[in-house]
Design a protein around this nucleic acid. Sequence first.
DNA 1: TATTGTTATACTCTATAACTATA
DNA 2: TATAGTTATAGAGTATAACAATA
Lengths: 138, 138
Amino acid sequence: MIDPLTDYPGYQLRRASAAAMADLADRLGVLDLRPAEATVLLVIEANPSATLSEVGRLLRIASANMTPLIARLEGRNLIEREPMDGRSQGLMLAPLGRSLTRQVKAVVADHEAALIEKIPATTRDEFLRTLRAIWAGE
Amino acid sequence: MIDPLTDYPGYQLRRASAAAMADLADRLGVLDLRPAEATVLLVIEANPSATLSEVGRLLRIASANMTPLIARLEGRNLIEREPMDGRSQGLMLAPLGRSLTRQVKAVVADHEAALIEKIPATTRDEFLRTLRAIWAGE
DNA sequence: TATTGTTATACTCTATAACTATA
DNA sequence: TATAGTTATAGAGTATAACAATA
């Protein structure tokens, strides 16, 4: 079998990302969290009182998709909403969310460590810069 | 807003891949093809008479998902099946599929060229090697 | 027994359009 | 008018389980 895609950076990027995402999803499964939910928790922790739209813009998740995601986290008592003005809501971690986010960070650290191991040490910074450059300007 | 994810190769990989995939999907939309369908056409062209399972293994697409994908391509008269033995079916491009695959290659080349532009020339080979290393051993 | 292909189903992420309430 | 959030819906990719037919 000939693989006509080995020299396509785009295809290799897709396969690499899919592999990494599958690993992350597996690890987060222990906490009953999906990757998108975990990243939202991390962003809220880093930005207390950030609004749904702000978090969505940072993560490139449309508000129509943020709404049910946030509702699930709220339903599990992981986050709380505080009205900012008549339409905006500040999001912050609830006590349960704070402890779970600590676990998320440990899980993500393990995942990232396993990933980084596969990147030659001398090229790690350049690799990261290149990835950022690929989606920069969105 | 603080982005707690800028230093995570895994997250940057995900964003870069998502951006590249969105660009590819846009471009392939002109041919009324989805990325998975386009890659299947390329693999069949490179490997005439490869079976559904073989193509699926190469692209890491489960046979349960290959079946409807192949059925769509066959329904559009892009590919044909030829029984190999009682259970295997060799896949090959139909005349319509051959000309469409030529267009696919042009579209993919444009897409990949735009992507490669964002990767510093001196690090392109290393970047590709690293991506392959990340999903190697699946 | 193992493999090929199929069916049915569900999950995750993403995308769009239409709507309300507020700024 | 523009923005925040919501609802409903659809698309694309992926995953699992179960199955019939064949090797």
